[in-house]
Design a protein around this nucleic acid. Structure first.
Lengths: 136, 136
DNA sequence: TTGCGTGCAAAGGTTTTGCATGGCA
DNA sequence: TGCCATGCAAAACCTTTGCACGCAA
């Protein structure tokens, strides 16, 4: 009884390598499927979702959700200190911004102190509109 | 040619009044439909979505999206728009906590001022672990 | 009367699940 | 060989859209 996530398979590597090739850049499930097919490494839709789910749980990749009806985005997380800073995602151009900010760190203690909520900064994404897109 | 949003109808009032009854509290479209049916004021699903869309555009209510697959939430907004509404989702029990907190509102101006990032609070969810689950 | 609002049903899109087959160890 | 992983198809899910009828003004 090896348990889940034991085997290393072709489809598994294909998905992870694809995301690994562009760290920090986000891709939808449909996009991944299309790209892998173009590379002669076709992977079934269900498998892609299952792998993505696994990688997210492992912490190798991160999931960004925009809203119902829209598709979710996934991006590779390097061994970079992504857990130590904050992410802002632009809803217009899709850009992902990384911030190191002590003032925002205060939110953490505030939430814990006043609401008993232990904030996982690494998994939280601030959605909004970035400077460039706002100028237009 | 009166234009859209001209008529005041039974279904329209029913939806708005339901949300108005619990300001700040969030409800899904399905929940609204079920509750109105229970009140002998049944409203079609499509109509509910159409009304919600209108009220959101008008600014009377607010839409919160959690993620693809999940349903969107809608809540009545009082006259004070300074009081932002934040969401914390527990990764353990899945509970959604919504809080009004002026201190957190400062994040918004901070992000805008220092990074030119216009934060969409409604779409942002803080992930972490809630008080109850942390005690275990 | 005019034409907006409604309701039903069907479509649209993303994600999940069932089940038999294929592949890793 | 023993299971896990895969893939196809179908289901589940939320939301939107088309169309004819009803209702507000």
């Amino acid at each position: 009884m090896a348990g889940k996530g034991t085997y290393r398979t072709r489809a598994q590597e294909a998905v992870l390598n694809y995301l690994k090739a562009t760290p920090g850049k986000h891709h939808t499930a449909a996009e991944i499927k299309a790209q892998l097919s173009a590379k002669d490494q076709p992977v079934g839709t269900a498998t892609i979702y299952r792998q993505l789910e696994r990688f997210v749980a492992e912490g190798s990749i991160r999931k960004y959700t925009l809203g119902p009806g829209d598709s979710a985005c996934y991006a590779f997380v390097g061994d970079c200190q992504c857990n130590a800073h904050f992410h802002c995602k632009c809803e217009v151009c899709g850009r992902l911004i990384h911030l190191n900010c002590d003032e925002l760190s205060e939110i953490r203690s505030h939430l814990l102190e006043h609401y008993g909520f232990s904030w996982n900064e690494g998994k939280t994404v601030f959605y909004g509109v970035c400077e460039d897109c706002r100028k237009k």
